[in-house]
Simulated scan of single mutants.
Amino acid sequence: MPDARRRFEYRLRFPDGARRVIPIVLDGTTLGCVEPPPVARAWTALACHRCPHCPLDAAEALCPLAARLDPLVEVLGSVLSYEALDVEVASGERTVSTHAPAQAVASSIIGLIGATSGCPHTAFLKPLAWFHQPFAGEEETVFRAVSAWFLKQHFRELDGETPDWSLAGLRQRYDALHTVNVHLARRLRQASSADATANAIVRLDMFTKAISGEIDDILGFLRGRLG
Results as ranks from 00 to 15, higher is better:
1 M>E: 13
1 M>W: 15
2 P>F: 09
4 A>W: 12
8 F>W: 09
13 R>E: 09
15 P>L: 03
17 G>I: 03
23 P>C: 05
27 D>H: 07
29 T>N: 11
31 L>S: 02
36 P>C: 03
36 P>Q: 04
38 P>I: 01
41 R>W: 11
42 A>T: 14
44 T>V: 09
48 C>M: 14
54 C>A: 06
55 P>S: 00
57 D>V: 11
59 A>H: 03
65 L>F: 07
66 A>Q: 06
68 R>C: 08
69 L>D: 06
76 L>G: 07
77 G>V: 13
80 L>Q: 12
80 L>D: 10
82 Y>H: 05
86 D>R: 10
87 V>L: 03
91 S>I: 06
93 E>Q: 08
99 H>W: 13
101 P>V: 14
101 P>K: 01
102 A>E: 06
104 A>M: 14
114 G>S: 00
116 T>Y: 14
116 T>S: 11
117 S>P: 08
117 S>F: 06
118 G>Q: 00
118 G>T: 04
121 H>K: 13
121 H>V: 09
126 K>A: 06
127 P>M: 06
128 L>P: 15
131 F>H: 09
131 F>P: 15
132 H>K: 01
133 Q>M: 15
136 A>W: 09
138 E>G: 07
138 E>I: 11
141 T>F: 15
146 V>K: 00
148 A>W: 05
149 W>F: 12
151 L>S: 06
151 L>A: 05
152 K>I: 08
153 Q>A: 01
155 F>L: 05
160 G>W: 11
164 D>M: 04
172 Q>V: 12
173 R>T: 15
181 N>S: 07
184 L>A: 04
185 A>G: 10
186 R>F: 04
188 L>K: 00
188 L>I: 06
196 A>T: 02
201 I>T: 15
201 I>G: 12
204 L>W: 05
211 I>R: 03
212 S>R: 09
213 G>C: 07
214 E>F: 12
222 L>P: 05
223 R>C: 10
224 G>D: 08
227 G>D: 15
